[in-house]
Amino acid sequence: MKLKGIHHVSAITGTAAGNVDFYTKVLGMRLVKKTVNQDDTSVYHLFYGDERGNPGTELTFFEFPNAWRSRPGTSSISSVSLRVPGDAALNYWHHRFVQYEVDHDDITERAGRLTLAFRDPEGQRLMLVSDEHDTGIAGGKPWVKADVPAEYGIVGLGPVQLTVSRAERTERVLTQLMGYTKKGQYASAIAGQPDIVVYETGEGGSGTEIHLEERSDLPQERQGIGAVHHVAFRVDDEAELRAWIDRVGAAGLAHSGFVDRFYFKSLYFREASGILFELATDGPGFDTDESLDALGESLALPPFLEPHRARIEAGLRPIGTGSPS
């Protein structure tokens, strides 16, 4: 009953085609699964990750083309980090962001690591974080066919920042329910606001961390294009997930119950500040229905959606110059 770290983060895009261009061609991540939102099959669900899409490396996007633009605020996942192998990689990425005209900040130390904050074309708030001095859970392996040298490539998800109006409520969920422990804290960049507190779980390290920011100067987030939908945490297998279902229920939190996403099994619940959390199993994995070499090349559907393929494909906008499939 010990969470292993961050499993994946799911965000919102307004255009699947533009999203694929940025995350594969600029960031050099692998599109490991092109599928649909299982709760709304009219829209894509895109998964990016390392060479295999290993748990802990997956950044995913729902395409909601008619959604409004997000408004940053509290009760939100306000920043997502992507791990790179070391400090030298940040210098490479700084030059690359200038080359590709990516909106970015300067390289800055946060929580004892060098970081490089940037925004994607839709304003999604992201940050590269150096693994130079990181210990704990290992990252993945960069996609070798990317237009980014492997020694600088993205190797997985790093710290996820939560922004809330009252930190103690979320802290209780993290520590008393989910088993996270406090690791440290660092100063907020916003004058007059409390320190940002760092929590970790499992083996610890960048790939397990939650950074909890309390803000009294913001309204509640309006979720939309450019926002994060939810964060998922790693559990070993279905047996452990079912034990977590009992644990979350006993804590009095409303939850989804067991959900079979085919590529992993899940549980969803909202923590005390309203942020959507998911617990997800490490397997079966993305090569369940596609070969490792062909991941993400065609529209993949779980077995229960396969009989509806023709209707689903007809309702999807093509990505790039090809068809949805």
Rank of each mutant, 00 (worst) to 15 (best):
K2T: 14
V9K: 02
A11Y: 05
G14P: 00
T15W: 08
N19E: 08
V20Q: 14
F22P: 00
Y23K: 14
T24V: 08
R30S: 07
K33N: 13
Q38R: 15
S42F: 13
D50Q: 12
E51D: 14
R52D: 10
G53L: 07
P55A: 06
T57W: 13
T60M: 10
P65C: 09
N66E: 12
N66Q: 13
A67W: 14
R69K: 14
T74C: 08
R83N: 03
A88L: 12
A89G: 14
A89T: 11
L90Y: 12
Q99H: 14
Y100D: 10
Y100K: 10
I107A: 08
A111L: 11
A117F: 13
P121E: 11
E122N: 08
H133C: 05
T135V: 11
T135I: 13
I137C: 01
K141I: 12
K145Y: 07
D147V: 13
Y152N: 09
Y152W: 04
L157K: 04
G158Y: 05
P159V: 03
V160R: 00
V160L: 02
Q161F: 12
S165F: 08
A167I: 05
L174V: 05
T175C: 08
L177Y: 05
M178F: 13
K183W: 04
G184L: 00
S188P: 03
A189Y: 08
A189N: 09
G192W: 11
D195S: 00
V198F: 01
Y199L: 00
E200A: 07
G205V: 03
T208H: 07
E209I: 14
S216T: 10
G226K: 09
H229S: 04
D237T: 02
D237R: 06
D246L: 11
G249M: 06
A251I: 04
S256N: 07
G257D: 05
F258I: 11
R261D: 06
Y263R: 04
L267I: 07
Y268P: 00
R270E: 09
G274P: 00
I275H: 01
F277H: 10
A280T: 15
G283H: 04
F286R: 06
T288Q: 15
S291F: 13
R311D: 15
G315R: 11
G315P: 12
L316G: 02
G320N: 10
T321W: 12
T321C: 03
S325K: 12
